[in-house]
């Protein structure tokens, strides 16, 4: 009886969080749903929710998927060697390596993307170096490549951290045993490290894939307004076209897409091991 009372009391500690979530996540979400299922002239309508399948919007969605997939693959390819190298470090060095990885996050994300714009622009730092080396200047600014560089740069951390957590937990003895039994490095990677790091990999994929699919600021700044992701379309509907209903409708459908892809990842989770985010 007393114990139960204590638990009830402690539940109150969560109230600030609950107020936060209700006020800033649940209620706005309901508002978005309301807008999504209302025609601009008023009255129920499903048109805005289905608008994602409109050819223009669908094209933007496909481009977003392309960017998100590319970004995820590149992040995986970059993160594995990085994390495997970090695994070999001693405790202090590991802390320092993590610190270096997280360091850029201390600066505002828009500023970092603007810095990339400076680096990639025709008269920018990159071309200055390239020309000093006597090579032809590169035209990366305002292309899909620039957007890809931006999203990879921005979301790589979210692949490294969960992956690092998963791989750091692997017992060295297991790897040694494998080596004793004559396993090659590649075999060790594919038969031991990869399966054991799968939970980290999956949460990394979710944390990279979802935001890179829905981002719009990076494509706006590094794509020079020429690259249209689905996020840019939604932004335009809200800020330029004043069509909140269509913007909300697209958001809701996109959210469903994201939820489906997340459910898919969760379902493929390995043997009951939850894919912990961090």
């Amino acid at each position: 009886m007393i114990k139960r009372k204590n638990i009830n009391k402690r539940a109150w500690f969560s109230s600030p969080y609950i107020i936060w979530v209700v006020g800033f996540t649940v209620i706005p979400m309901l508002v978005i749903f309301r807008y999504a299922f209302t025609a601009r002239e008023g009255g129920f309508s499903i048109e805005n929710v289905l608008a994602l399948f409109d050819p223009i919007h669908f094209k933007a969605l496909l481009f977003s998927l392309k960017i998100a997939l590319g970004c995820t693959v590149i992040c995986i390819l970059l993160a594995y060697p990085m994390v495997l190298a970090m695994r070999r470090l001693n405790l202090g060095q590991r802390g320092f390596a993590l610190f270096i990885v997280i360091l850029p996050m201390w600066m505002n994300f828009i500023l970092r993307i603007l810095a990339w714009q400076m680096i990639l622009s025709p008269n920018g730092i990159l071309n200055f170096i390239v020309q000093k080396l006597g090579l032809q200047p590169l035209a990366i600014a305002n292309t899909g490549t620039a957007v890809m560089i931006g999203v990879v740069y921005d979301y790589l951390l979210y692949m490294i951290l969960p992956l690092f957590n998963a791989i750091a937990e692997i017992d060295e003895d297991i790897l040694e045993a494998a080596r004793d039994l004559g396993a090659e490095s590649l075999t060790i990677f594919f038969r031991i490290i990869l399966p054991l790091s799968l939970p980290g990999l999956l949460s990394g994929i979710v944390m990279v894939f979802v935001p890179s699919m829905t981002s719009f600021v990076i494509s706006d700044i590094l794509g020079g307004g020429k690259m249209q992701l689905i996020g840019n379309v939604i932004e335009q509907e809200f800020t330029k076209s004043a069509n909140w209903n269509l913007g909300s409708g697209l958001s809701v459908t996109l959210m469903i897409f994201v939820l489906i892809s997340m459910a898919f990842t969760m379902k493929n989770d390995v043997e009951g091991k939850k894919s912990a985010i961090w």
């Binding site: 223009i56 919007h57 094209k59 933007a60 481009f63 307004g225 020429k226 249209q228 840019n232 379309v233 335009q236 509907e237 330029k240 076209s241 069509n243």
Partner: peptide
Amino acid sequence: MDTLWKELKA
């Protein structure tokens, strides 16, 4: 115009 603009951007 909004639609034409989106087509242009896409």
